[in-house]
Design a protein around this nucleic acid. Structure first.
Length: 848
DNA sequence: GTCGTCCCGGGTTCC
DNA sequence: CCGGGACGAC
């Protein structure tokens, strides 16, 4: 408890009952949470009765990591997880209570859109609504715990949603799947269940929730249930950082917490330990314009500080160049390393030009978010194979991959299968099998043969799974047997090589997962750094593994076994599908962009949303333009004012990420979807007090009204303003934006942005480092013709340099060298298809 | 049924 | 400006 200020101490050592911690940015919120948990474990509660809930896995990981510093391995005994991961685990424990089976799948946005798209088409209403609209409405209703089919908009219910939603939900049910909202909703149902509800509501004696301002109604309802018995509910948040209104978050949950819990102790944390006074003044000035806030003001002992730089560029490339070259210079001159910098922006679309200029200026940078790895087409395809393997009822997975890679099975065939499946209430996969046996009418010999090929592929893969292959091995086999590898290799384009290497990356991910699972318990899902077996304290009976007969004894997990009971959820063996596939799929579905490691050697480029909770010595906020930041799009569910207030909070979050230096930039013109927009400075720039700014006020007298149909750019005559701007014919990287307040903008040497032939930094993680698999024998020889047929007993010898070898995923290549020995021995191979890779030797076969 | 070309539209933000 | 869907040619 050392080093806490009085308020922090009061929060950390609060005894029992509800506690509300209103914590401003940079006030040591996480620190207090961690100390509070440590305090609880040391004096008030057994660790496994503590539940800490976060929004992102990264936040959970961070918390566990810090807790380990205080508590050691006891930190592993408690339950620290995201809302969704926690709930998913509860559902896996008692799936049948809410109409699921243990192997339920999680539908992501893509799956939802595809399904709704199909339903919209079938209902022939595609001229009236887009699937996106329907999905948004469904999500919005579910966020609020309302039945989407019955939600009233104005005085009437949305007929299209009312038509589609029941079909949508029915299909989910049929596929044994849930969407993100269902995960939470069904968990609430579980907590209200007469059989198991009481257990869930008494599982935890202390419940702590981080970023409470971001909870929506359903999440709040859920948390209240978790804390139902004990009332030991600690919520921590900052109403000024409520930036998820668009996904149903309700800051009133935080603001009115002491109305629901009148006996709640309230602690305010206002001393900021992160930023300089200058940065705080700017942030406070912006947020002070908001009406609807609980009101607290941050202060710091770090008086003064570097003034805030501002820069206005001619266009987005000038802006990007200014930022990239500025960082380059600081790296060259200063005591800075790349990880000291973050560039924040409002929308992902801004990332690209920034990334390009970073590259051109040889600044190692990484974009977080945008198209997440798991959203790549080829990755999703392989995942769909896994999903279909794990659950043959998954029509959505079937749809996705029957014909990927193309094997001549077209829409007409699939539609017949669908009809057949509908007729006898089975899945399309089952119908495909029936068709191969000739039991589906209307299918000729041709389609039948092609379906047989597909069914064979799936059966072959099933035997790989049944033989006990690890997830990484299964994925390698999927890539091979599906023909994906062959197809991508045949294409042999830059893109196809890229895709192959993404698949290799997927194998690496799976392999990490296998490792974790091999040496951890089910808790590996939650703990970030789960390197060792969870140590139960001697006196406690935490069932870490299933009893010999495979069933964890109910008596053991009953009562106070909170975290342990959850961990036990995945320990029950299943005849056909190992829980590992489910677990892997779940992890992927619940992975978030924020979880992508902000590398230690990179400048981080990300949206403001993702940056919440992070801090950097030097921060650039780009694109401070009216209409972009604040975004002024019309949205149906929020008033203009409410929206603007949220944007303001977003700016507040952005500014307060900076520890020492903050630079605000905007561009007078910006390309949006190909055409050039003329931009006005953000109104938030006006709010920054002049005394904080290097060079005084920005030339920002012109205020853009909210865009309208008559003035789509927000003002009447865009050209009028351009006349004042520097001539702008050649869209070359802008030198400076024209206005003079550009301290530090020394005239740069013109740099032509082009893709460098060799990247300045290499993403040098070995893309095909499969690392240690389980120590069992490789399983590739499950059938004679297995393309990955693996020769046993040839370990440790390695391959002579120059030997031609083949690999299930990468094809043929030439050996460059060996390293390591035994099962871990690796070989460096120059593959024809994907270039040089390090692979485990036992996955190679010598070519004669 | 596949593959190429053209056209249209893109929800900002995420678990 | 991109990518996905629609449509037409093999």
């Amino acid at each position: 408890m050392r080093g806490l200020n009085p308020e922090q101490y009061a929060a950390a050592t609060h005894t029992d009952g509800p506690l509300l911690v209103l914590a401003g940015a940079g006030t040591g919120k996480t620190r207090v949470l961690v100390h509070r948990i440590a305090h609880l474990v040391e004096c008030r509660a057994e660790p496994w009765t503590v539940l800490a809930v976060t929004f992102t896995k990264k936040a959970a990981d961070e918390m566990r990591h810090r807790l380990r510093g205080l508590l050691g391995s006891a930190a592993d005994a408690m339950w620290i997880g995201t809302f969704h991961a926690t709930c998913a685990r509860l559902l896996r424990r008692w799936p049948e209570r809410v109409g699921l089976t243990k192997h339920f799948a999680i539908f992501d946005d893509d799956d939802q859109m595809k399904l709704i798209g199909r339903l919209v088409k079938e209902a022939k209403i595609e001229e009236y609504v887009t699937p996106r609209t329907i999905l948004t409405r469904i999500d919005r209703a579910k966020n609020r715990g309302v039945d989407p089919g019955k939600e009233e908009i104005g005085v009437y219910t949305d007929e299209h949603v009312a038509l589609i939603y029941p079909k949508y939900q029915a299909q989910l049910e049929k596929e044994n799947a849930v969407d993100f909202n269902d995960i939470l909703l069904k968990t609430i149902k579980l907590a209200d269940d007469e059989q198991v509800g009481a257990r869930i509501r008494t599982m935890f004696r202390h419940v702590l929730v981080d970023e409470f301002q971001d909870t929506n109604k359903v999440q709040y309802d859920l948390v209240r249930r978790f804390a139902d018995a004990s009332r030991n509910l600690t919520v921590v948040g900052d109403d000024d950082q409520a930036i998820y209104g668009w996904r149903g978050a309700n800051p009133r949950n935080l603001l009115d917490f002491d109305r629901d819990y009148p006996d709640a102790k309230v602690v305010k944390l206002e001393q900021n330990y992160r930023s300089t006074q200058v940065v705080l003044d700017a942030a406070n000035a912006v947020i002070s314009h908001n009406q609807d806030r609980r009101g607290k003001s941050l202060w710091t002992e770090a008086q003064g500080g570097d003034l805030i730089e501002q820069f206005v560029a001619g266009d987005e490339r000038g802006e990007a160049y200014f930022i990239a070259s500025g960082i380059r210079r600081m790296l060259d001159e200063g005591p800075y390393s790349p990880s000291d910098f973050a560039v924040l922006y409002r929308t992902n679309a801004q990332s690209r030009v920034l990334e390009e200029h970073m590259r051109a200026c040889r600044v190692p940078a990484k974009v977080i978010g945008a198209v997440s790895f798991f959203e790549r087409k080829e990755v999703k395809d392989v995942i769909a194979y896994l999903r279909l393997l794990a659950n043959s009822a998954s029509d959505s997975a079937f749809d996705r991959i029957v014909n990927v890679p193309a094997r001549g099975i077209g829409e007409a065939t699939v539609e017949r299968l669908r009809a057949a499946a509908r007729a006898d209430g089975s899945s399309t996969m089952a119908a495909a099998r029936a068709a191969v046996r000739g039991e589906v009418s209307g299918l000729g010999a041709g389609p039948r043969k092609k379906l047989a090929v597909f069914v064979d592929v799936m059966d072959g893969l099933a035997s790989v799974v049944a033989a006990g292959a690890s997830v990484a091995e299964i994925i390698i086999q999927v890539v091979e047997r599906s023909g994906l590898r062959a197809k991508l290799e045949a294409e042999d384009t830059e893109e196809s090589r890229d895709r192959l290497s993404n698949l290799a990356e997927l194998v690496t991910t799976a392999s990490d997962f296998d490792d974790e699972r091999a040496n951890g318990s089910g808790a590996a899902m939650f703990g970030a750094f789960h390197d060792e077996e969870v140590e139960p304290a001697p006196a406690m009976a935490i069932p870490q593994t299933a009893a010999p007969d495979g069933e964890p004894s109910e008596a053991d997990v009953d009562g106070d076994g909170g975290a342990a009971a959850l961990r036990a959820a995945d320990q029950e063996p299943d005849a056909m599908v190992p829980a590992t596939i489910d677990e892997f799929l779940e992890r992927i579905a619940l992975a978030s962009v924020a979880d992508q490691a902000a590398g230690t050697d990179f400048v981080t480029l990300m949206t403001v949303h993702i940056a919440k909770g992070l801090e950097y010595p030097v921060v650039y906020v780009a694109g401070l333009e009216d209409g972009l930041f604040p975004s002024l799009r019309e949205r149906e569910e929020q008033s203009q004012d409410a929206q603007l207030e949220e944007e303001r909070r977003l700016a507040y979050v952005a500014f307060t990420r900076a520890k020492h230096r903050l630079t605000l930039t905007w561009a007078r013109t910006r390309r949006v979807w190909g055409d050039i927009r003329f931009q006005m400075p953000s109104r938030f720039l006006d709010d920054v007090p002049p005394h904080c700014l290097a060079g005084g006020k920005l030339g920002s007298a012109v205020r853009a009204p909210i865009p309208s149909a008559a003035a789509p750019y927000g003002y009447d005559d865009p050209w009028q303003d351009v006349a004042a701007a520097p001539a702008y014919p050649a869209r070359a990287p802008a030198r400076s934006g024209g206005y003079a307040n550009t301290a530090g903008a020394t005239a740069p040497t013109p740099v032509h942005v082009r893709k460098p032939r060799t990247p300045a930094f290499s993403n040098s993680r070995d893309e095909f480092d499969q690392r240690s698999f389980d120590d069992h024998e490789p399983v590739f020889d499950v059938d004679a013709d297995g393309a990955g047929a693996h020769r046993k007993g040839r370990m440790g010898a390695g391959f002579a340099t120059g030997t031609r070898v083949s690999h299930a995923a990468f094809g043929v290549g030439r050996v460059l060298g060996n390293m390591g020995e035994g099962a871990d021995q690796k070989t460096l191979v120059d593959f024809a298809s994907v270039g040089t890779k390090t692979v485990l030797s036992r996955f190679l076969q010598a070519q004669s």
